[in-house]
Structure formats: structure tokens, C-alpha cells
Amino acid sequence: MKKLSEDEIQNKLKDLEGWTYAKKAIHTSFQFENFKEAFTVMTRIAFEAEAQQHHPNWGNVYNQLEISLSTHDADGVTEKDFKMASAIEQIVDPSN
């Protein structure tokens, strides 16, 4: 997978509301009603990550979920990260 340039990343981020680029990864966070809702979404994302064989770095505290995506083999952000980010957005808000 080819690592994207910062310009390519910034251009692609225009299609992902709430995502930012820093430290060789794209990042976002979500807030849910409660822990159960956050964990349910995390479980759905986990199944998608397995299907794509691309796993996020993430953290969860109660109703907060923070996600970072990068392609370790490329030492940066690739198309693979944007594919996963789009899938995450569909899981969190299917109306997108």
C-alpha cells in the first residue's frame, strides 16, 4: 500500500466530518448515550476491522470512543485507512 502525501490526506479528509490528521494517522472521536451503546458500536467496528484485516488503535472511557487509523506497514496513512474510516462512519451513522 502506498503512503499518501499530506495533501492527499487533507483532500480526502474533506469527505469525513470530524476526522483530523496528526502523527502519521487519521483520528476521530464519538460520544454515545452510555457505555452499552459505545461498546455495541465498538463490537460492530471490530467485526468490520476483521473483515478488512485492518484494525484501529482505539480507546474507550464510558461513553467516549477515540479512534486512530494508520497503516503500520506503510508508516503512515493509506487508502486502506480511508476505506476503514468510511466503514466506521457507516456503522456509527448509517444515514451517511
Score class of each variant (00 low, 15 high):
Ile88Thr: 05
Ile26Met: 07
Phe39Ser: 05
Met1Gln: 11
Pro56Glu: 13
Ala46Thr: 08
His27Ser: 11
Met42Arg: 10
Leu4Phe: 06
Ile26Thr: 08
Leu13Met: 14
Arg44His: 12
Phe32Ile: 03
Phe39Cys: 01
Asn57Leu: 13
Pro56Lys: 04
Ser29Thr: 12
Gln53Phe: 09
Gly59Pro: 03
Glu66His: 12
Asn34Lys: 03
His27Ile: 02
Gly76Phe: 09
Gly59Tyr: 10
Ala51His: 10
Ala85Leu: 13
Lys14Arg: 14
Val77Thr: 07
Gln64Pro: 01
Ser29Val: 12
Ala46Gly: 15
Ala85Lys: 03
Thr40Leu: 02
Val61Phe: 06
Thr71Arg: 04
Asn63Tyr: 00
Glu6Leu: 04
Ser29Tyr: 09
Phe39Trp: 10
Asp15His: 04
Asn34Tyr: 03
Met42His: 08
Phe39Pro: 01
Pro56Tyr: 12
Lys12Gln: 07
Val41Thr: 05
Glu89Pro: 02
Ser5Gln: 06
Asp15Glu: 15
Tyr62Val: 07
Ala22Ile: 08
Glu79Gly: 09
Met1Asn: 10
Val41Gln: 00
Ile67Trp: 04
Lys3Ser: 00
Glu6His: 12
Thr43Ala: 12
Ala87Val: 03
His55Gly: 08
Leu13Ala: 06
Trp19Phe: 04
Gly18Val: 15
Ala85Pro: 05
Phe82Pro: 00
Ile45Tyr: 01
Ile9Pro: 00
Thr40Ser: 00
Pro94Glu: 05
Glu66Tyr: 09
Thr28Pro: 04
Trp58Phe: 09
Glu33Thr: 10
Glu33Ser: 13
Glu6Lys: 15
Glu17Asn: 14
Asn63Leu: 05
Glu79Leu: 11
Thr71Ser: 11
Met42Ala: 08
Lys36Cys: 01
Val41Gly: 00
His72Tyr: 10
Met42Cys: 11
His54Glu: 11
Ala74Phe: 05
Glu66Trp: 08
Glu17His: 15
His55Cys: 11
Glu33Pro: 14
Asn60Leu: 01
Tyr21Phe: 15
Gln31Asn: 10
Thr43Phe: 06
Phe47Ile: 14
Ala74Asn: 04
Lys14Tyr: 05
Glu89Met: 07
Glu66Gly: 13
Phe39Arg: 07
Glu17Ser: 15
Ala87Asp: 13
Val77Ser: 02
Thr40Pro: 01
Val92His: 00
Val77Met: 13
Pro56Gln: 11
Lys36Gln: 14
Lys80Val: 08
Leu4Pro: 06
Asp7Pro: 11
Asn11Pro: 07
